[in-house]
Amino acid sequence: MQSLTNTMQAVPLNNYILLSAIIFSIGVIGVLIRRNAIVIFMSVELMLNAVNLLLAAFSVYRGDATGQVFVFFIMALAAAEVAIGLAIIVMIYRNTNSIDINVLNRLKW
């Protein structure tokens, strides 16, 4: 473990930021290009994880544990959101037999 982490010493912080940004953006793109509510939701999870990773990186970089603690809260949120989100999706599926978000545009203008 120790050696492994030592190898990381050389990784510039910016690379983590870049990685997170890329994955975050991939999540964003996922939200944009998909119509399936669940997949969209998964893309959002991807975004959250990108943030998590960045937080952890910052935390390590700063030598400050609060960043990692924050990740727990994000995870708690993720859990709560998943529960609610999936409940909503199930509810909608029950009513419309679809989870295509494009079908859901009765409310507009």
């Binding site: 939200v31 944009l32 119509r35 969209i40 978000i101 494009n102 859901l104 545009n105 009765r106 409310l107 507009k108 203008w109």
Partner: peptide
């Protein structure tokens, strides 16, 4: 302007 409000989540997010 109200047509911007397409009702479509995808376009909103876009």
């Amino acid at each position: 302007l109200r047509l911007l409000q397409t009702g479509n989540v995808g376009s909103y997010i876009f």
